[in-house]
Design a protein around this nucleic acid. Structure first.
Lengths: 238, 238
DNA sequence: AGAGTAGGTGTACGATGTACACCACGTCAA
DNA sequence: TTGACGTGGTGTACATCGTACACCTACTCT
């Protein structure tokens, strides 16, 4: 019984979305049900439907909410760009590209659920398009042809979305699920073991990959490659 | 009432997983509920729990099922590798890398739901590790240091999983949802428009991006970059 | 004063995952 | 032959989910 706690301030789409993001942050994405969200707002579940169309629209809204919050200059304090081959100092267009990319990536650090929601969204919302526009126009302004720009956007792929898959260091807690899968035998994977061993000698104290470092390396390498294609006057075959 | 249709063959984990994959293929991922799956098998929902631990385990199993089916040589008929800069012919190690990658990518073409399931899985199952091992050992065998191999795996990122995000050409059907989002104004995105226009002149008949082409281009470019790093004796800083 | 609207309520329904108790059968030891 | 047991399918039951629908209140505008 959501007792109206002394004239609660009225809801709005923005209030709902903010609460939903907070709820997802502390309880995980599964914790975001219309009922829990309504509870958190001191309101009955159906009240939410006056502000969001349905749950899909709520999730859309959460994405939009975070991306919009990025806006101009949401990239402060992030690691500077650097080329991977250390042969030249960063050009200004690279900052124009890495800025928005690091901005979105920061969202992933703050909101671990963000990735999974993004994956299920139709992505042609204004905030998403604005993000793409920032990147696209940065390449065009740097002298990339539209053709090459197009290809480079594909090349950047999920880098645009600010994460590389957490394949290498899962939160490998104790298996709570009644999984039928056998625990794999490490000796079946000598290559992986060799890489892991090498990685351990290189960073003895670390318990997982240097995700930020790997991300920046990948981004820089890809941008280096893009730059090389541009300078060589690349255009698509046929 | 699932009438035992004249001594139905007994279930097994494999039968269940195969049916689940088929169900997902024709009804989409949302259509895969324990009840629907049981129906499709002519069985009561709870019967499934003798073969899969729970729904999470079912989804794990579906991924494992498909990846295992790839096994050795699941890569026939796919486009040959080619370098993006056309300066050298493909080396054998590149086929060893692109083979498994194209194999997984083929799964995405066949099973559109595969991507979304992958995103929600814990990825350290045997089939997943086997896939990674194939790639890792191919790099090591090609003379990449473990250090560089590690970084290149991160660099490949989702390319390992055989897709780049379908950001550019959604199945943009009529909006069935009661979305609150405003339809964006195209003129707000001149860069995107310029790229799209150029793309149209280049492939006038196409209604969407050449996804396979873009994927192959991105993969080749990344592998070119990796090769360059390897030849230059790259090792991680510090 | 009366109509309209924006926003919150209450009830109700169908779908989902799955716990739990049950039972039919085969195999095997006694 | 008997009886115990494990394997696999059944039936019922429950909590939780998204949300349709009818309602009620309070405020604004004519």
């Amino acid at each position: 019984m959501p007792r109206a706690i002394a004239a609660r301030a009225p809801l709005s789409r923005d209030v709902v979305l903010t609460a939903a993001v907070a709820l997802a942050d502390e309880r995980g994405l599964e914790g975001v049900s219309m009922r829990h969200l309504a509870d958190a707002l001191g309101v009955v579940p159906m009240a939410l439907y006056k502000h969001v169309g349905d749950k899909e629209d709520l999730l859309d809204g959460m994405v939009e909410h975070l991306l919009t919050g990025l806006g101009v200059g949401g990239t402060t304090g992030h690691q500077a760009d650097r080329t991977a081959d250390h042969t030249s100092k960063p050009l200004p267009w690279r900052e124009a590209v890495t800025g928005p990319i690091h901005g979105v990536r920061a969202l992933h650090r703050t909101h671990p659920w963000f990735r999974r929601v993004l994956e299920t969204r139709q992505l042609r919302t204004p905030a998403v398009l604005a993000h793409m526009e920032r990147l696209t126009s940065a390449f065009l302004a740097a002298g990339f042809t539209p053709d090459l720009t197009h290809h480079v956007m594909h090349l950047l792929g999920n880098r645009i979305w600010g994460f590389s898959p957490e394949l290498f260091n899962e939160a490998g807690g104790p298996p709570t699920r009644r999984s039928t899968a056998p625990t794999p035998d490490p000796t079946d994977y000598p290559g992986i073991l060799a890489v892991a061993a090498d990685s351990r000698t290189r960073r003895p104290t670390a318990t997982s990959c240097d995700e930020d470092g790997e991300f920046d390396f990948a981004l820089a390498t890809i941008l280096d490659a893009a730059e090389r294609l541009q300078r060589s006057g690349w255009s698509s075959p046929k």
